[in-house]
Lab assay of single mutants.
Amino acid sequence: MALNTPQITPTKKITVRAIGEELPRGDYQRCPQCDMLFSLPEINSHQSAYCPRCQAKIRDGRDWSLTRLAAMAFTMLLLMPFAWGEPLLHIWLLGIRIDANVMQGIWQMTKQGDAITGSMVFFCVIGAPLILVTSIAYLWFGNRLGMNLRPVLLMLERLKEWVMLDIYLVGIGVASIKVQDYAHIQAGVGLFSFVALVILTTVTLSHLNVEELWERFYPQRPATRRDEKLRVCLGCHFTGYPDQRGRCPRCHIPLRLRRRHSLQKCWAALLASIVLLLPANLLPISIIYLNGGRQEDTILSGIMSLASSNIAVAGIVFIASILVPFTKVIVMFTLLLSIHFKCQQGLRTRILLLRMVTWIGRWSMLDLFVISLTMSLINRDQILAFTMGPAAFYFGAAVILTILAVEWLDSRLLWDAHESGNARFDD
């Protein structure tokens, strides 16, 4: 018995066209964080690309023209004298008006014999932002004059995390709450300039795509075929072959399989920071003279006294001054041990922890910024005066060393310790 099946006739004509040209192939790229070699397709503007294995951002879609970056830099340069030299806060102490600005706080630190601690604050609040705007201006002028731009481009990517104007702005709020127990506070004209400078700096850093600047100024022929001998440069993120001198053909720094002496430098910085954190938390970090009496505060006791007036601000200072430094030390110690013992479990967790400490590390400088600003506000000789204690130097040095330890660690070593050939990683 035959089955009668109805015929289905399409209502619209289906047209099949042959592909007349070869589909576009992607360029081969190595991930600078996990060293995976993959094919990167062509990316349009405002599109980002991520590593298929570790999800690290390979290409950032946010990109401004150099002219727009230069305009932002010149605007920031105009704001800087007002943000640093004009009063941020006014207080009335014992019937006398006192003005506080950024430069005055750094000068008070240096004047009291601790120039190293003052230079830490100076670099993060004044030096690094000033280098940022002058570097962008150098790129703008240098591109037109045919100057060598490689050193500036190499420095810009590392400079971003040292620009800490946003953290200093939080420190202004913390210092205001600490001082309000002794005097009446009012915002100064410099505060508005400083807030504007923070906003412009944040926007500029978020749109400063150094890798795209490398592509514009020093374009290189990408690798179009897969080759395990391809290496990625950690300076400019170019994937290719080393030249005859073993250097990256684009930025001219040595092109090595792994960062040289990464573990040794990381261990040295980490152990030194552990040693410095002990006096930083045991010795007094601030000293207040009130009517001839002397009151010393460690980091913890200062947080407890701050909690009596504002528990939320005390929580912020606790996280930045105690929780973050010790968390960074514990995480980095764990990561280094996992590399030495070739741990194969929990790779995803370790990668996330490394990215976390990379982002939060700079916030530990908050305590030094609060001390710097408070020193310029309260300084009335023996009637009422505020000065920093010996722990300030140890704390600042420990924070900087932990930042350097994270920067010096080559994250690809975590993958080397893991089993080879993993296309995915999980716990």
Rank of each mutant, 00 (worst) to 15 (best):
Arg247Met: 13
Ser262Glu: 07
Arg150Ala: 04
Leu306Pro: 00
Lys229Gly: 12
Asp181Thr: 02
Gly127Val: 03
Ile303Met: 09
Ala268Gln: 04
Thr204Asn: 11
Thr134Ser: 13
Ala392His: 01
Trp92Arg: 04
Lys328Cys: 00
Leu354His: 08
Arg158Asn: 13
Leu283Phe: 06
Pro10Gly: 04
Arg355Ile: 15
Glu296Asp: 10
Leu197Trp: 08
Ile339Ala: 11
Asp35Arg: 02
Arg362Asn: 02
Arg25Cys: 08
Ile287Asn: 08
Met80Phe: 05
Arg30Lys: 08
Asp27Ser: 11
Asp60Glu: 10
Gly105Cys: 03
Ala392Ser: 07
Arg231Lys: 11
Leu278Val: 10
Val198Pro: 07
Leu347Ile: 12
Leu159Met: 03
Gly190Ile: 02
Leu300Val: 09
His237Asp: 13
Pro6Tyr: 08
Ala115Val: 07
Ser206Tyr: 15
Leu205Asp: 14
Gly421Trp: 10
Ala70Lys: 11
Gln33Trp: 09
Ala187Ser: 12
Leu255Arg: 05
Leu93Gly: 01
Ile351Trp: 15
Tyr394His: 09
Ala320Pro: 01
Leu40Ile: 07
Ala423Phe: 15
Val125Gly: 08
Leu335Ser: 07
Ser321Gly: 01
Gln104Thr: 09
Thr75His: 08
Thr349Pro: 14
Val195Arg: 00
Glu228Gly: 14
Leu300Phe: 15
Ile403Lys: 06
Ile167Leu: 03
Pro32Lys: 08
Asn209Leu: 09
Leu139Val: 08
Trp140Glu: 07
Asn422Val: 08
Trp359Asp: 07
Gly85Thr: 06
Phe425Trp: 12
Ile299Glu: 00
Thr75Pro: 12
Ile351Tyr: 10
Ser206Asp: 08
Asp60Tyr: 06
Leu191Val: 10
Leu169Cys: 10
Leu337Pro: 05
Leu283Val: 09
Ile19Arg: 09
Cys54Thr: 00
Ile58Val: 09
Leu368Ala: 07
Met36Pro: 00
Thr134Trp: 11
Thr9Met: 07
Tyr218Lys: 11
Leu354Tyr: 09
His46Asp: 07
Arg231Val: 14
Gln47Ile: 10
Glu161Cys: 13
Gly421Cys: 05
Ala307Asn: 14
Tyr394Trp: 08
Ser301Val: 05
Val317Trp: 00
Met388Gln: 10
Ser39His: 10
Lys160Val: 10
Trp408His: 06
Ser48Glu: 14
His237Phe: 12
Val152Ile: 06
Leu409Cys: 04
His46Tyr: 10
His252Lys: 10
Gln220Asp: 14
Leu139Met: 05
Gly113Tyr: 07
Pro279Val: 15
Glu86Thr: 03
Val232Trp: 13
Arg355Gln: 13
Asp410Trp: 00
Ala100Gln: 02
Phe122Trp: 04
Leu271Trp: 12
Arg97Gly: 03
Trp84Leu: 07
Leu337His: 12
Arg59Gln: 05
Asn148Cys: 04
Arg97Pro: 03
Tyr218Phe: 05
Met164Arg: 02
Gly95Met: 06
Gln344Val: 10
Lys342Tyr: 13
Gly246Cys: 12
His90Asp: 03
Ala175Asn: 15
Ala128Cys: 11
Arg216Asp: 13
Thr204Val: 09
Gly142Arg: 01
Pro151Arg: 15
Gln382Val: 10
Phe393Thr: 14
Ser273Asp: 12
Val357Glu: 08
Ala269Ser: 12
Ala70Glu: 14
Asp297Met: 08
Leu89Val: 09
Arg59Phe: 05
Cys343Ala: 12
Asn143Gln: 10
Leu159Gly: 02
Ala18Glu: 08
His46Ile: 03
Arg216Glu: 13
Met147Cys: 09
Arg350Thr: 09
Ser262Trp: 04
Ile177Thr: 04
Met365Ala: 03
Trp64Ser: 10
Ala280Tyr: 02
Leu336Ile: 11
Ala280Lys: 04
Leu373Asn: 03
Cys248Met: 00
Pro325Thr: 04
Ser321Glu: 00
Glu419Leu: 12
Thr201Trp: 04
Leu414Gly: 08
Gly26Phe: 09
Ser45Thr: 06
Ile106Ala: 03
Gly421Met: 05
Gly190Arg: 02
Ile172Leu: 13
Asn143Ala: 15
Thr15Tyr: 06
Thr204Trp: 03
Asn422Cys: 09
Ala312Cys: 13
Ala280Asn: 03
Thr334Asp: 07
Val203Ala: 15
Ala392Arg: 00
Leu159Lys: 01
Gln29Trp: 08
Arg350Trp: 13
Ile136Thr: 07
Lys229Asp: 12
Gly240Arg: 11
Arg17Met: 08
Gly127Ile: 02
Leu200Asn: 15
Asp427Met: 11
Arg150His: 04
Phe425Ser: 14
Ile378Asp: 00
Ala187Met: 14
Ala187Thr: 12
Cys236Asp: 08
Val399Ala: 15
Thr201Val: 11
Ala272Leu: 03
Ala405Phe: 04
Gly346Asn: 13
Leu145Ala: 09
Ile199Lys: 06
Ser309Cys: 09
Leu257Asp: 12
His340Val: 10
Leu352Gln: 11
Thr67Asp: 04
Gly20Pro: 05
Ala397Gly: 11
Arg259Pro: 09
Arg150Lys: 15
Ile116Phe: 03
Gln104Arg: 03
Phe141Met: 11
Gln108Trp: 09
Met80Ala: 07
Ile106Cys: 03
Val317Tyr: 02
Leu89Ser: 12
Ile303Ala: 06
Leu290Trp: 02
Met1Phe: 00
Gly292Arg: 11
Ser119Gln: 02
Arg260Tyr: 08
Ala391Lys: 00
Gly396Arg: 00
Arg225Glu: 14
Arg144Gln: 12
Ala405Pro: 02
Gly235Leu: 02
Arg350Asn: 11
Glu157Ala: 14
Arg250Gln: 14
Met164Thr: 05
Leu94Tyr: 01
Ala73Ser: 07
Glu21Asp: 08
Leu149Phe: 04
Ile322Met: 11
Val198Asp: 12
Leu347Met: 12
Arg226Asn: 14
Ile287Asp: 04
Pro10Gln: 07
Val406Ser: 04
Pro87Phe: 09
Thr327His: 07
Trp363Asp: 02
Arg30Val: 07
Arg216Gln: 13
Arg150Gln: 04
Leu276Phe: 14
His252Pro: 03
Ala307Thr: 14
Leu200Gly: 14
Glu157Thr: 14
Leu230Cys: 15
Phe318Ala: 10
Ser376Asn: 01
Ile400Trp: 07
Glu296His: 12
Pro52Cys: 07
Arg412Cys: 01
Tyr138His: 04
Ile371Asp: 00
His207Thr: 09
Arg350Phe: 13
Lys160Pro: 09
Met304Pro: 07
Tyr28Val: 09
Cys54Ala: 00
Lys111Gln: 10
Leu354Asn: 10
Val102Met: 10
Arg424Met: 07
Asp243Gly: 12
Val210Ile: 15
Ser372His: 04
Lys13Glu: 06
Met356Ala: 12
Gly421Ser: 04
Cys233Ser: 05
His340Glu: 10
Val210Met: 14
Ser308Phe: 08
Thr239Ile: 08
Cys34Gln: 00
Arg144Cys: 09
Ile91Ser: 01
Arg158Ile: 13
Leu169Ala: 06
Tyr138Ala: 08
His90Phe: 11
Ser309Pro: 09
Ala280Asp: 02
Ile330Cys: 12
Gly142Lys: 01
Tyr138Ser: 06
Ala2Asn: 06
Leu89Ala: 02
Gly95Lys: 09
Thr374Asp: 00
Asn422Met: 05
Leu205Cys: 13
Thr374Met: 09
Val125Asn: 07
Pro24Asn: 10
Leu230Phe: 14
Pro6Ile: 05
Ile400Glu: 04
Arg225Gly: 12
Pro249Phe: 10
Val121Pro: 03
Ile360Asp: 00
Met1Ile: 01
Lys57Met: 10
Val406Gly: 05
Gln180Leu: 13
Glu42Tyr: 03
Leu353Arg: 13
Ser308His: 13
Met76Glu: 03
Cys236His: 00
Ile287Thr: 09
Ser309Gly: 13
Phe425Ile: 14
Gln186Arg: 13
Tyr138Trp: 07
Gln186Pro: 02
Ile43Leu: 06
Ala49Phe: 06
Val329Thr: 10
Arg256Thr: 12
Asn209Lys: 12
Thr204Tyr: 06
Ala71Arg: 01
Leu404Glu: 14
Gly61Trp: 14
Gly85Met: 04
Met120Phe: 12
Ile167Thr: 03
Met365Val: 04
Ser286Lys: 00
Arg412Gln: 01
Val357His: 02
Leu200Met: 13
Ser372Val: 06
Ala391Glu: 02
Ala392Phe: 03
Ala187Trp: 13
Gln47Glu: 04
Ser338His: 13
Ser119Thr: 10
Ile43Trp: 09
Gly389Asn: 01
Leu377Gly: 01
Pro284Val: 06
Asp381Ser: 03
